[in-house]
Design a protein around this nucleic acid. Structure first.
Length: 497
RNA sequence: CGCGGGGUGGAGGAGCGGUACCUCGUCAGGCUCAUAAUCUGAAGACCCCGGUUCGAAUCCGGGCCCCGCAACCA
């Protein structure tokens, strides 16, 4: 808390620095963290660390979405209160910070009073576009949700064939999404709100062209089982979980009290980046911007949409029991190995596959034989030489102004984290080639050897510095080993498996 | 005619109008600083049928086959 106040004070003083705000989606807590969410939070973390390393002022927020009906059902299953359940399960997400080494600034839970206060203010700010309407539909008691005709099998819910559907009619609040159709289309077309990749942008535009309908933003207390944030002024209605959840992005900054943090990182921010998965693009590229337009709040600037990860080529699902959990994978292979795999082997905005064989292939090829081995061989030769290697810290302070980082940076600008990493491995490949061609072990001439080793040591130092956003712990280890005069061989960074 | 992504050497992926690239695997050779590592070289590929073009993996039309999504699911 104290730290946060310091940050606030710090931020408001420093107006010339570029401000960047980064968020992840906030997952439901009723299931264990998914490897797909690990991908998302790692992508966000890398971008955050990268911007920070360029001396930008950043703020990075993640959290959990806890007002879902699913939590009520799960709690009933476990025989505990919903409150107890969300407290218990949100810990699984909180601990990702350590497991994945995520450097976020705040973690927001939608059951926190500070969030609720923000949602209430935001709802009121949208009030001119909110109206009451009666909604009639087929309700499945088993799923606890309305079904559409086209989802039915012989007039019944495919998942609960033994239960008859009820015709339920109730009054809900609706949001005038239709009103913002034209404006949204223009904002997205002109990339005032930039959706990455292009394919996702086109999807959204196509959806808008089909015509936007107003959507329900509340449900009855009965249907919500009393769980969630009540509609201001109407305790018989609970705010629809998505309307509430999206507001987290500004409630974490203090929208309600118009804090300095909110001004810096939202109202006057240079860049607002939402990292999300493809399944929730519509909420972030259509509903959320429309809600912000209605409330008179500025819009985010970027939506970075990642794809989905399959397991052994199949969609991960609970029923198949093939869901990969980040915690288990990290326990087996280590944090940086998992970060590396997700960043390099999964294209940032496309679907990718996660399987043991592929993971271990990438691990051995890139981390053990590639980076780890290169570090080991240069360290050993440096040690054998008995030379002292001057540390030129100045040369590394302005690393992002150097020619050799330009390709990497342009890939970071287009969010191609995989290609950015590849640039580092190109350097390592040059290094291996350089060693084989110059055969330092056979060089008798001290001056010549000195020249060769200086070059090689420097390449390792460069790699270590630019790898920091991607695999921070490994970068730290290499820097500890190489940013000193007497470089000594050490244990392998990534033992072969 | 619901929407979208995709079919590239043995495997997994890039490329998306002009000598087809990367990783793993295979074969031959080199080196020994290194984690049986690393370097050099070799064999081997653009789903099918038409079309546009001087030229197509890349664009257009048709076909076959996979895989997602179809408003609340990372």
């Amino acid at each position: 808390m104290k730290e946060k106040k310091d940050r606030q004070a710090n931020h408001s003083k420093n107006h010339s620095t570029k401000k960047t705000y980064i968020t992840t989606a906030i997952p439901y807590v009723n299931a264990a963290p998914h490897i797909g969410f690990a991908l998302e939070i790692i992508q966000a973390d890398v971008l955050n660390r990268y911007y920070k390393s360029k001396d930008q002022d950043t703020y990075f927020v993640t959290g959990t979405d806890e007002n879902s009906l699913k939590n009520v059902l799960k709690a009933e299953e476990e025989g505990i209160s919903t409150k107890e359940l969300v407290n218990k399960y949100s810990k699984n997400f909180l601990e990702l910070k350590e497991i994945l080494n995520i450097d976020y600034d705040d973690f927001i839970r939608t059951t926190e009073p500070r969030h609720i206060k923000n949602v209430e203010k935001f709802w009121k700010a949208c009030e001119k576009d909110i109206y009451k309407k009666s909604y009639k539909g087929l309700y499945c008691v088993g799923c606890e949700e309305f079904k559409l005709e086209k989802d039915l099998e012989e007039g019944k819910c495919p998942e609960h064939l033994n239960k008859a559907l009820e015709v339920v009619e109730e009054e809900n609040y609706f949001f005038k999404l239709s009103k913002y159709q034209k404006q949204l289309k223009e904002l997205i077309e002109t990339e005032t709100l930039k959706i990455v990749p292009k394919g996702r942008k086109n999807d959204v535009l196509g959806f808008i062209d089909q015509g936007l309908e107003d959507f329900s933003i509340s449900r009855s207390v009965e249907r919500a089982k009393g769980w969630g944030i009540p509609v201001p002024g109407d305790p018989s209605q609970i705010i629809y979980v998505w309307f509430d959840a999206l507001v987290n992005y500004i409630s974490a900054l203090g929208y309600a009290e118009e804090s300095a943090l909110y001004k810096d990182f939202w109202a006057d921010s240079d860049k607002i980046l939402h990292c999300i998965g493809k399944g929730i693009t519509r909420f972030h590229a259509i509903y959320w911007p429309a809600m912000l337009l209605s409330a008179g709040v500025r819009l985010p600037t970027h939506e970075l949409v990642h794809g989905y990860i399959t397991a052994d080529g199949q969609k991960m699902s609970k029923s198949l029991g093939n869901v990969v959990e980040p915690k288990a994978v990290v326990e087996k292979y280590g944090t940086d190995a998992v970060r590396y795999f997700l960043l390099k082997a999964i294209p940032p905005t496309k679907d990718g596959d996660f399987n043991k064989g592929y993971f271990e292939e990438v691990y051995n090829a890139d981390l053990a034989n590639g980076l780890g081995n290169a570090v080991a061989r240069v360290a050993k030769m440096a040690e054998n030489s008995g030379f002292e290697f001057e540390v030129d810290t100045k040369g590394f302070e302005k690393v992002w102004e150097a020619d050799w980082t330009q390709d990497l940076q342009s890939h970071m600008e287009s969010f191609r984290l995989d290609l950015a990493i590849q640039e580092v491995w190109k350097m390592l490949s040059q290094l291996d080639k350089h060693i084989n061609e110059h055969e330092p072990w056979a060089v008798k001439d001290e001056e010549k050897l000195r020249e060769i080793l200086d070059f090689e040591v420097n390449l390792i130092r460069r790699a270590a510095v630019v790898l920091k956003p991607f695999i921070p712990d490994t970068s730290r280890k290499i820097q500890a080993q190489f940013f000193k005069k007497d470089i000594k061989a050490q244990k392998p960074l990534f033992p072969r498996i």
